[in-house]
Amino acid sequence: MASHAEITASLRAFQSGYSKNKRLKIMNRDWDRVVLVKAEDIESEHTLILKDGELSLMEGNNGRADLIVAADSETLADMFYGDITPTEPYMNGTLKITGSEDDIVRLDFISLMIWGE
């Protein structure tokens, strides 16, 4: 089980990876979304905000999520650190993403562009 602080640290690593990737920012210029990241086994919520290609992170839930990413704390931390890809936990049901299929593919894509080979 990962702690809230570990999930926060993993999301900061994800945000840092995103921010260093100029091409990814260009790719997401049109994709303004609020993503709620919610742990299912501990009290932990974070909000990722994508606006004009920039990604920001806040702790807690701002109540305006377009997409909800929910999993156990360990899976969330592993995923945002890039130790695992989202595809496998998504396909086996460990990771649940609520939102449109296009948005789910887009989120998967961002993660792969940051952490992919």
């Binding site: 989202p86 998967d108 562009m113």
Partner: peptide, 18 residues
């Protein structure tokens, strides 16, 4: 380059998503 990053995982998604 982009294919090498994303396709190894994207091919695992249900095909109708792609």
């Amino acid at each position: 380059e982009i294919a090498a990053r994303i396709l190894p995982e994207m091919v695992k998604l249900p095909f109708h998503m792609l």
